[in-house]
Every structure is written in C-alpha cells, then in structure tokens.
C-alpha cells in the first residue's frame, strides 16, 4: 500500500545532516532520479544548485535503511524544498515554474490566476422549441395558403365577370 510521506509530514522530522557520511550505490541511483526530476522543471541555476545540495544533505541524514522509505522520504524532502520556493506549496511552485514566462511576478497563487483567466460560466437555457411536424397539418396549411392566395388574386385581378 502506498503511503504518502508528504501528507504524513514525515519530511519535517528529518534529523540533522552529517556531511561526511558516505553515499551508498542505492543513494546514487536515487539521487540521479531526483536530479532527473529537477531537470524537468525550469529552475534557474542558483535554485537548482541549492536544491541539489539540499537533496544530497537530506539523503545523508536519513537513518532508515529500508529503500522504499528512503526513496519516499527523499522525494518528500525534495518537494518540501521546492515548496519553500513558492510560499510553502510545491504544486503552486511547479505551476509557477511552468507558467513562468507569462505569470506576473506578484501572483501568489498561480492556480487561482490560471482559473481566473478561464472564463467563468454564466449559465443560460437552451431548449428546443416546439415544432408541429404532422404531414396532414402541413397539407392543411398549404391548402389554406393556396385558398388565401386565390382569394387575393381574385380581388386583385378579376379574370371573369364585371369589375365593381
């Protein structure tokens, strides 16, 4: 069963770093995966360096040996650091980075900004209007209009009889 270490807040309880601890082979793989994550986001150089340093530090500090927990905690730690770049919310941070070229600098919540730029619906009704499709009614209407036309024509152009 997947346990979300980010939601459980375990990343906040990490012990203090020991910079001299050696990196295991598994940690190197893990680190390279985290770096591939970082490479997918358009950080500037300073941010990237800081995040890499923080990540390395966090990995060295992890005391548990279970690789599943190490992996989960490493990623939680990474997200935690990314969140610090944008007022504590890693998703908003990722979104801000994604929309960086057009996102105004003063925007605090890019998600809200994006939704605000989607036009909000103002609902109105659209329902089909009644339609009389009976053929007999159609023929009656046509007969009546022919009769009307005939009556009008007789009034306008009397073909036979005296004009009064």
């Amino acid at each position: 069963m997947y346990v979300d270490h980010w939601q459980s807040g375990s990343a906040a309880d990490l012990p203090l770093p020991q910079a001299t601890d050696p990196m295991t082979a598994e940690d190197v793989v893990l680190l390279s995966r985290m770096e591939s994550y970082l490479s997918r986001l358009p950080f500037d150089d300073a941010q990237r360096l800081w995040l890499q340093a923080e990540l390395t530090l966090q990995l060295r500090q992890l005391t548990v040996d279970d690789p599943a927990v190490r992996s989960a905690r490493a990623f939680a730690a990474l997200q935690n650091r990314i969140a610090t770049l944008h007022r504590g919310d890693e998703w908003e941070a990722r979104l801000a980075l994604s929309l960086r070229p057009v996102l105004p600098a003063e925007i605090e919540q890019p998600s809200r900004w994006l939704r605000g730029h989607q036009l909000q619906p103002q609902r109105s009704k659209m329902a089909s209007v009644p339609m009389q499709r009976s053929v007999s009614a159609f023929l009656q209407r046509q007969t009546q209009s022919l009769r009307d036309f005939w009556n009008r024509s007789r009034r306008l152009v009397p073909f036979f009889g005296n004009v009064r």
């Binding site: 994550y37 997918r40 986001l41 358009p42 998703w91 990722r94 979104l95 980075l97 994604s98 929309l99 890019p110 998600s111 994006l114 939704r115 989607q118």
Partner: peptide
C-alpha cells in the same frame, strides 16, 4: 510523471 504537465493539468 512530468512535474510541469502534472501541475498544469491539475490546475485545470
């Protein structure tokens, strides 16, 4: 997987 695609999609 992609952190950018995921962020934009989630926002919508």
């Amino acid at each position: 997987v992609d952190p950018r695609f995921n962020a934009v999609h989630a926002a919508l």
